[in-house]
Write a protein that binds this DNA or RNA. Structure first.
Length: 412
RNA sequence: GCCGGGAUAGGGUAGUGGUUAUCCUGAGGGACUGUGGAUCCCUCGAGCUGGGUUCGAAUCCCGGUCCCGGCCCCA
């Protein structure tokens, strides 16, 4: 028999794994919510152009692109920032600023899968639109740190600012600037030095590598001088310090993208391999690309699947389960009892097969913490027999007392 | 796209160019008819795929697929 395989780079999730994912997702949602961010949702696919405007034609080869029946070129979303900003321009422009939005959504990229990299993957992202202050930037950084910490992973949060590098590179041709950013992003100092030597800029190469190694503001400014952004940068970092945020200054973050305008930040998980970046973000201006006013924005996206990989297998407290075994005479009462248990929020499962009570109990005992036994005797008396499957103790109780007893106990 | 390593029941595994492929676990059914995961019995279930070498291939060779590690890329 030939079985149909799942598409390359996709995954199936069994209930155990889904429960873990939902739990972590819940941590992130809760934090976003407490910072005043509210959930939005955009289409799974968009016009291809939305993504090429932002990132160039080069990305088409790495997207799921298709022509719909009306002849339009569409793409499954490879990320959410462009769709969110498109949404903002389409229908959010008259809302009071700043907007605080978040999303949890799957994205698609046609790339070679490896650990922590899949063709369908999930991002938890935050976009803050229409504020332009150090505090606004600090807010998203602090929230990002809080989310990763709540996820239970070990990570380091690196915060930088593009102004440092831009000031050093300002004298170069755009092509050389891009090249330099590429080397810096890869932390390839040898490549950088070699390239700069070839264009007669050895001094600049050493300044850049020093900059990338700076871990405090005074040494960074000693390389760049008093750049116009200095006050704003100092303010940002003093807010982070005041808030007790754990971060590392990293002026070497290049984030190869043209639309990032200032602050940039990334986080790396400590126990992942080549794909160890679990979060990326920064300040950007994008709305004007999609027909809106130029709008200061900042945000980040968490690579949710990498967070899950980094967490590893975490044992999770299972939900309390009640199983019901009944005889034919007790079935009607058992059904009523089951709905009462469920109304009380308890996970309640009827034994779906098994002729005898003993058989039903052995089925129920595989997954349940408590067994509710309901036969003719219970039905006649309006009572239930509640058996604690962990201790073996059982007692005959009124329905409400049985519910209270179960609710008052701990899962196994 | 590049380099390398893999692929044996649902999961985890052993093994050899030669009978009927090993073990653990799992799943289903039955015995047990008002007391439990037990026990007993039965059943299900595998060498990724397509070619080649060979009397004979799960084993050796080649292509493909998928997974893993690294590179590239990373919106």
């Amino acid at each position: 028999m030939t079985m149909i395989q799942k598409p390359r780079g996709t995954r199936d999730f069994l209930p155990d794994e889904m429960e873990q994912r939902r739990e972590v997702e819940g941590f992130m949602r809760r934090i976003a919510g407490t910072w005043g961010y509210r959930e939005i949702c955009t289409p799974e696919f968009e016009e291809l152009e939305l993504f090429t405007i932002r990132s160039g034609e080069g990305i088409v080869g790495e997207m799921y692109v298709f022509e719909d029946k009306g002849g339009r070129m569409m793409a499954l979303r490879p990320e959410l920032t462009a769709p969110v900003l498109r949404m903002y321009v389409n229908e959010g422009r008259t809302l009071a600023k700043p907007l605080r939005w978040y999303y949890f959504a799957d994205c698609f990229r046609y790339e070679r899968p490896q650990k922590g990299r899949y063709r369908q993957f999930w991002q938890f992202g935050v976009e803050q639109i229409g504020a332009d202050s150090a505090l606004a930037e600090a807010e998203v950084i602090m929230m990002a740190g809080e989310m990763l910490a709540a996820s239970g992973i070990s990570f380091s949060l690196h915060v930088g600012h593009l102004a440092f590098m831009r000031s050093l590179l300002s004298g170069l041709e755009p092509g050389d600037q891009k090249k330099a950013r590429m080397f810096l992003d890869k932390k390839d100092n040898q490549g950088l030095e070699g390239y700069f030597a070839s264009i007669g800029q050895e001094d600049l190469a050493s300044s850049l590598t020093s900059l990338a190694g700076c871990r405090d503001l005074p040494s960074a400014f000693s390389l760049t001088g008093d750049i116009p952004e200095k006050d704003r940068i100092c303010e940002l970092f003093s807010i982070l310090d005041a808030a007790g945020t754990r971060y590392e200054l990293d002026p070497g973050i290049a984030r190869g993208l043209d639309y990032y305008s200032g602050m940039v930040f990334e986080a790396y998980a400590e126990n992942l391999g080549a794909e160890n970046q679990v979060l990326g973000g920064g300040t950007y201006r994008l709305a004007h690309l999609f027909g809106g006013e130029e709008t200061p924005s900042c945000g980040f996206a968490v690579g949710f699947d990498r967070v899950m990989v980094s967490r590893g297998e975490k044992s999770r407290q299972a939900a309390l389960v009640v199983g019901i075994a009944s005889t034919p005479e007790g079935l009607e009462y058992a059904l009523a009892a089951a709905s009462r248990f469920r109304e009380a929020g308890l996970r309640t499962e009827l034994a779906l097969s098994g002729k005898s009570l003993g058989q039903q109990l052995s089925i129920v005992a595989r997954s349940a913490d408590f067994a509710l036994i309901i036969g003719k005797r219970e039905s006649d008396e309006g009572m239930v027999t509640l058996k604690d499957l962990r201790s073996g103790a059982q007692k005959i109780l009124a329905l409400d007392d049985a519910i209270a007893e179960v609710k008052g106990s701990e899962p196994r």
